[in-house]
Simulated scan of single mutants.
Amino acid sequence: MPVAIQAQDFSKSQCAAGLRTALNILDKWKASSEQACQILRISRSTYTRAKQRDSEWAVGLDFDQMQRISLVLNIHAALRLVFDNPENVYGFPSMENRNEFFNGRAPLDIMAQGDMISLYETFRRIDALRGAQW
């Protein structure tokens, strides 16, 4: 019987590693610190600590925060499959998009609304671009 992974199944150092990875991706997408905090549902102080190079730093994250990190990582993976060049892989999230769902807004702006539905729907739309490439 499959067992669902819960946030408590991750150590604080694993949570910190995931958070730092997601923040590195968001930096490459040109997300502001405010956008990153909204997308990942973290405080400004957690953001600041995660950006420091303290290898001993660790943080406990809840299930929602871990899901958000996972979605950012999966959006990044989908973009890497869809686009061959780094300019599009890292530029696409901040580009205006005329697709019906985005209506002229950048995917990053949709994700930064802060709710899980906006983040998930952005992932779904970007993931759909890759077709059957998995």
Rank of each mutant, 00 (worst) to 15 (best):
L108Q: 03
D84A: 14
N88D: 15
D84V: 07
P107G: 06
M66P: 01
E100R: 12
E56T: 14
V59P: 12
L79S: 10
D64F: 10
D54L: 09
I117L: 02
S70K: 08
D115E: 03
F92H: 12
N88I: 01
L108I: 02
A50Y: 01
E96W: 09
N103C: 08
L71W: 02
A58L: 10
A106Q: 05
M111S: 11
I39W: 02
Q52Y: 04
K51D: 06
D64P: 09
L73F: 05
S70V: 05
P107R: 04
F63R: 08
Q52D: 07
D62H: 07
V59Q: 14
F63K: 10
R105N: 10
F83K: 09
G114N: 00
E96Y: 11
W57T: 13
N74F: 01
S55C: 04
N103L: 12
Q67F: 07
M66G: 02
W57Q: 13
Y90W: 11
A58M: 15
V72T: 07
R41L: 12
F92T: 11
D54E: 06
V72F: 03
G114W: 00
F83P: 09
M66Q: 14
M95V: 08
A50N: 11
E87T: 13
E87A: 14
D109K: 05
G114L: 01
T46Q: 15
L81W: 00
I117S: 02
D109N: 05
G114I: 00
G114Q: 01
E87M: 11
R105S: 06
A78G: 02
E87S: 13
E100Q: 10
E87L: 10
G60T: 12
D84G: 15
D109T: 05
R53Q: 12
T46D: 15
D109A: 08
V59H: 11
N74K: 14
R53K: 13
D84C: 05
D109L: 00
F63S: 15
